[in-house]
Protein backbone atom coordinates (compact mmCIF):
# COMPACT_ATOMS: atom_id res chain seq x y z
CA UNK A 1 0.00 0.00 0.00
CA UNK A 2 2.80 2.33 0.87
CA UNK A 3 4.68 1.83 -2.40
CA UNK A 4 1.59 2.67 -4.47
CA UNK A 5 0.93 5.81 -2.46
CA UNK A 6 4.59 6.65 -2.61
CA UNK A 7 4.88 6.51 -6.39
CA UNK A 8 1.69 8.56 -6.70
CA UNK A 9 3.08 11.23 -4.39
CA UNK A 10 6.51 11.14 -6.03
CA UNK A 11 4.85 11.55 -9.39
CA UNK A 12 2.75 14.46 -8.18
CA UNK A 13 5.77 16.14 -6.58
CA UNK A 14 7.78 15.45 -9.76
CA UNK A 15 10.45 13.63 -7.79
CA UNK A 16 12.68 10.95 -9.28
CA UNK A 17 12.12 7.34 -8.23
CA UNK A 18 15.51 6.17 -9.42
CA UNK A 19 18.52 6.54 -7.13
CA UNK A 20 21.04 9.22 -8.19
CA UNK A 21 23.76 8.40 -10.69
CA UNK A 22 27.32 9.11 -9.65
CA UNK A 23 29.19 11.67 -11.80
CA UNK A 24 30.33 10.05 -15.05
CA UNK A 25 34.07 10.41 -14.58
CA UNK A 26 35.37 6.88 -15.02
CA UNK A 27 35.19 6.02 -11.32
CA UNK A 28 36.52 2.64 -10.28
CA UNK A 29 34.26 1.83 -7.35
CA UNK A 30 30.90 3.10 -6.22
CA UNK A 31 29.09 2.46 -2.96
CA UNK A 32 25.62 3.67 -2.15
CA UNK A 33 24.75 4.31 1.49
CA UNK A 34 21.37 5.07 2.95
CA UNK A 35 20.14 6.29 6.30
CA UNK A 36 19.32 3.54 8.77
CA UNK A 37 15.74 2.31 9.22
CA UNK A 38 16.14 3.31 12.84
CA UNK A 39 16.54 6.88 11.65
CA UNK A 40 12.81 6.83 10.83
CA UNK A 41 11.91 6.10 14.44
CA UNK A 42 14.47 8.61 15.63
CA UNK A 43 12.93 11.40 13.59
CA UNK A 44 9.40 10.44 14.62
CA UNK A 45 10.38 10.42 18.28
CA UNK A 46 12.05 13.78 17.81
CA UNK A 47 8.91 15.19 16.23
CA UNK A 48 6.55 13.85 18.89
CA UNK A 49 8.83 15.02 21.67
CA UNK A 50 8.55 18.54 20.32
CA UNK A 51 4.85 18.17 19.70
CA UNK A 52 4.11 16.32 22.92
CA UNK A 53 4.24 19.30 25.26
CA UNK A 54 1.62 21.14 23.25
CA UNK A 55 -0.52 18.03 23.02
CA UNK A 56 -0.32 17.35 26.74
CA UNK A 57 -1.59 20.83 27.42
CA UNK A 58 -4.57 20.42 25.08
CA UNK A 59 -5.32 17.00 26.58
CA UNK A 60 -5.28 18.41 30.12
CA UNK A 61 -7.71 21.11 29.04
CA UNK A 62 -10.19 18.60 27.59
CA UNK A 63 -9.92 16.32 30.63
CA UNK A 64 -10.53 19.32 32.80
CA UNK A 65 -13.66 20.23 30.90
CA UNK A 66 -14.78 16.57 31.05
CA UNK A 67 -14.74 16.71 34.81
CA UNK A 68 -16.73 19.91 34.57
CA UNK A 69 -19.34 17.62 32.95
CA UNK A 70 -19.75 19.48 29.72
CA UNK A 71 -21.20 17.33 26.89
CA UNK A 72 -19.00 19.02 24.34
CA UNK A 73 -15.92 17.54 26.04
CA UNK A 74 -16.65 14.00 24.74
CA UNK A 75 -16.88 15.31 21.19
CA UNK A 76 -13.65 17.24 21.68
CA UNK A 77 -11.82 14.15 22.92
CA UNK A 78 -12.99 12.01 20.00
CA UNK A 79 -12.09 14.73 17.49
CA UNK A 80 -8.67 15.27 18.99
CA UNK A 81 -8.03 11.52 18.99
CA UNK A 82 -8.89 11.32 15.27
CA UNK A 83 -6.78 14.38 14.62
CA UNK A 84 -3.87 12.85 16.45
CA UNK A 85 -4.13 9.60 14.52
CA UNK A 86 -4.23 11.46 11.21
CA UNK A 87 -1.31 13.61 12.23
CA UNK A 88 0.64 10.53 13.23
CA UNK A 89 0.03 8.88 9.87
CA UNK A 90 0.89 12.04 7.98
CA UNK A 91 4.10 12.57 9.93
CA UNK A 92 5.10 8.97 9.41
CA UNK A 93 4.51 9.29 5.68
CA UNK A 94 6.52 12.52 5.42
CA UNK A 95 9.44 11.08 7.33
CA UNK A 96 9.29 7.87 5.33
CA UNK A 97 9.26 9.55 1.92
CA UNK A 98 12.13 11.79 2.99
CA UNK A 99 14.01 8.68 4.04
CA UNK A 100 13.30 7.03 0.69
CA UNK A 101 14.81 9.91 -1.23
CA UNK A 102 17.84 10.34 1.00
CA UNK A 103 20.79 8.67 -0.71
CA UNK A 104 24.56 8.97 -0.32
CA UNK A 105 26.67 7.92 -3.29
CA UNK A 106 30.36 7.45 -2.52
CA UNK A 107 32.67 6.76 -5.46
CA UNK A 108 36.46 6.80 -5.35
CA UNK A 109 36.43 10.19 -7.09
CA UNK A 110 33.48 12.08 -5.71
CA UNK A 111 30.72 12.24 -3.16
CA UNK A 112 27.09 12.90 -4.02
CA UNK A 113 24.30 13.42 -1.49
CA UNK A 114 20.62 13.55 -2.40
CA UNK A 115 18.03 14.86 0.02
CA UNK A 116 14.84 16.85 0.29
CA UNK A 117 11.20 16.43 -0.65
CA UNK A 118 9.90 19.96 -1.00
CA UNK A 119 13.24 21.38 -2.13
CA UNK A 120 15.07 18.57 -3.83
CA UNK A 121 18.84 18.87 -3.53
CA UNK A 122 21.76 16.95 -4.94
CA UNK A 123 25.22 17.96 -3.78
CA UNK A 124 28.42 16.86 -5.47
CA UNK A 125 31.98 17.38 -4.33
CA UNK A 126 35.43 16.00 -5.10
CA UNK A 127 37.74 14.72 -2.39
CA UNK A 128 40.43 17.30 -3.17
CA UNK A 129 38.15 19.89 -1.56
CA UNK A 130 37.41 18.03 1.66
CA UNK A 131 38.86 19.83 4.67
CA UNK A 132 37.60 17.66 7.52
CA UNK A 133 35.22 14.86 8.31
CA UNK A 134 33.19 14.73 11.53
CA UNK A 135 31.13 12.02 13.14
CA UNK A 136 28.53 13.33 15.59
CA UNK A 137 26.00 11.59 17.80
CA UNK A 138 23.46 13.04 20.19
CA UNK A 139 22.07 11.21 23.23
CA UNK A 140 18.88 10.24 21.42
CA UNK A 141 20.84 9.11 18.37
CA UNK A 142 23.01 7.03 20.70
CA UNK A 143 19.87 5.34 21.96
CA UNK A 144 18.96 4.42 18.39
CA UNK A 145 22.53 3.51 17.48
CA UNK A 146 22.88 5.94 14.59
CA UNK A 147 25.41 8.62 13.80
CA UNK A 148 25.74 11.62 11.48
CA UNK A 149 28.74 11.99 9.24
CA UNK A 150 29.53 15.53 8.17
CA UNK A 151 31.99 16.29 5.39
CA UNK A 152 33.23 19.89 5.37
CA UNK A 153 34.76 21.80 2.50
CA UNK A 154 36.55 25.13 2.87
CA UNK A 155 34.48 28.23 3.50
CA UNK A 156 32.37 29.55 6.32
CA UNK A 157 28.95 30.86 7.08
CA UNK A 158 27.29 27.50 7.14
CA UNK A 159 24.67 27.10 9.81
CA UNK A 160 25.17 23.36 9.72
CA UNK A 161 25.17 23.02 13.49
CA UNK A 162 21.59 24.27 13.65
CA UNK A 163 19.85 21.31 12.08
CA UNK A 164 21.73 18.07 12.30
CA UNK A 165 20.65 16.34 9.12
CA UNK A 166 20.57 19.33 6.80
CA UNK A 167 23.43 19.93 4.43
CA UNK A 168 24.15 23.60 3.88
CA UNK A 169 26.64 25.73 2.02
CA UNK A 170 30.05 24.29 2.53
CA UNK A 171 29.29 20.88 3.94
CA UNK A 172 27.28 17.79 3.25
CA UNK A 173 25.79 15.59 5.95
CA UNK A 174 25.32 11.86 5.64
CA UNK A 175 22.72 11.63 8.36
CA UNK A 176 21.45 8.60 10.23
CA UNK A 177 24.18 6.14 9.34
CA UNK A 178 24.59 2.90 11.25
CA UNK A 179 28.15 2.43 10.04
CA UNK A 180 29.29 6.06 10.09
CA UNK A 181 32.80 5.13 11.15
CA UNK A 182 33.28 2.72 8.25
CA UNK A 183 31.99 5.31 5.78
CA UNK A 184 34.28 7.88 7.38
CA UNK A 185 37.31 5.62 6.95
CA UNK A 186 36.33 4.95 3.35
CA UNK A 187 36.00 8.67 2.59
CA UNK A 188 39.24 9.48 4.41
CA UNK A 189 41.12 6.89 2.39
CA UNK A 190 39.92 8.58 -0.80
CA UNK A 191 40.71 12.02 0.64
CA UNK A 192 44.25 10.87 1.39
CA UNK A 193 44.84 9.98 -2.26
CA UNK A 194 43.18 13.13 -3.56
CA UNK A 195 44.88 15.58 -1.20
CA UNK A 196 48.47 15.09 -2.37
CA UNK A 197 48.35 18.76 -3.27
CA UNK A 198 48.37 21.23 -0.42
CA UNK A 199 45.24 22.70 1.14
CA UNK A 200 43.60 25.33 -0.98
CA UNK A 201 46.34 26.24 -3.43
CA UNK A 202 46.70 25.26 -7.02
CA UNK A 203 46.69 21.59 -7.66
CA UNK A 204 49.96 21.71 -9.67
CA UNK A 205 51.55 21.37 -6.22
CA UNK A 206 51.42 17.64 -6.91
CA UNK A 207 54.53 18.17 -9.06
CA UNK A 208 56.50 19.42 -6.03
CA UNK A 209 55.67 16.29 -4.11
CA UNK A 210 57.06 14.17 -6.93
CA UNK A 211 60.27 16.24 -7.12
CA UNK A 212 60.86 15.89 -3.39
CA UNK A 213 60.44 12.16 -3.48
CA UNK A 214 62.90 11.74 -6.38
CA UNK A 215 65.85 12.67 -4.08
CA UNK A 216 65.36 9.45 -2.22
CA UNK A 217 66.17 7.35 -5.27
CA UNK A 218 69.17 5.02 -4.95
CA UNK A 219 71.24 6.42 -7.86
CA UNK A 220 71.55 9.79 -6.11
CA UNK A 221 72.47 8.14 -2.83
CA UNK A 222 75.17 5.99 -4.51
CA UNK A 223 76.70 9.03 -6.20
CA UNK A 224 76.75 10.93 -2.92
CA UNK A 225 78.38 7.95 -1.16
CA UNK A 226 81.26 7.78 -3.68
CA UNK A 227 81.68 11.56 -3.35
CA UNK A 228 81.98 11.11 0.41
CA UNK A 229 84.63 8.38 -0.05
CA UNK A 230 86.74 10.66 -2.25
CA UNK A 231 86.50 13.64 0.09
CA UNK A 232 87.47 11.44 3.04
CA UNK A 233 90.56 10.16 1.18
CA UNK A 234 91.44 13.73 0.11
CA UNK A 235 91.21 14.94 3.69
CA UNK A 236 93.37 12.07 4.94
CA UNK A 237 96.09 12.62 2.33
CA UNK A 238 96.19 16.39 2.96
CA UNK A 239 96.41 15.76 6.69
CA UNK A 240 99.22 13.25 6.24
CA UNK A 241 101.12 15.74 4.04
CA UNK A 242 100.82 18.60 6.56
CA UNK A 243 102.00 16.29 9.36
CA UNK A 244 105.14 15.39 7.34
CA UNK A 245 106.03 19.01 6.73
Amino acid sequence: MYSGLKSAVLNFLRLPERPPDPPRDGYQSVQVFRASKRWLSYRLVLFWLGFGLLELFAFAMTIGSLFANEPIATVAIVLSAIGLALLFAFTWFCVRIEWDLRTYVVTDRSLRVRQGVWTFKEMTLTYANVQNVQVTQGPLQRLFGIEDLRVDTAGGGSSGSGKGHESTGHNVTLAGLENAREVRDLILSYVKVASRGSGLGDLDDVDHAQRASSFESTAVVDALKSLRTTTRALRASVERRTRLL
Binding site: D25, Q28, D108, R109, T124, T126, R196, G197, L203, V206
Partner: peptide, 18 residues
Protein backbone atom coordinates in the same frame (compact mmCIF):
# COMPACT_ATOMS: atom_id res chain seq x y z
CA UNK B 1 26.33 19.80 -13.63
CA UNK B 2 28.38 17.20 -15.50
CA UNK B 3 29.99 19.97 -17.55
CA UNK B 4 31.01 21.89 -14.43
CA UNK B 5 32.02 18.72 -12.59
CA UNK B 6 34.52 17.79 -15.30
CA UNK B 7 36.18 21.20 -14.86
CA UNK B 8 35.93 21.71 -11.10
CA UNK B 9 38.76 21.68 -8.59
CA UNK B 10 40.02 18.19 -7.84
CA UNK B 11 38.47 16.35 -10.73
CA UNK B 12 41.64 16.27 -12.84
CA UNK B 13 43.84 15.33 -9.91
CA UNK B 14 41.63 12.38 -9.14
CA UNK B 15 41.82 11.33 -12.77
CA UNK B 16 45.60 11.85 -12.93
CA UNK B 17 46.54 10.26 -9.61
CA UNK B 18 45.50 6.77 -10.65
Amino acid sequence: REFLYRRMRGHEVAAASS
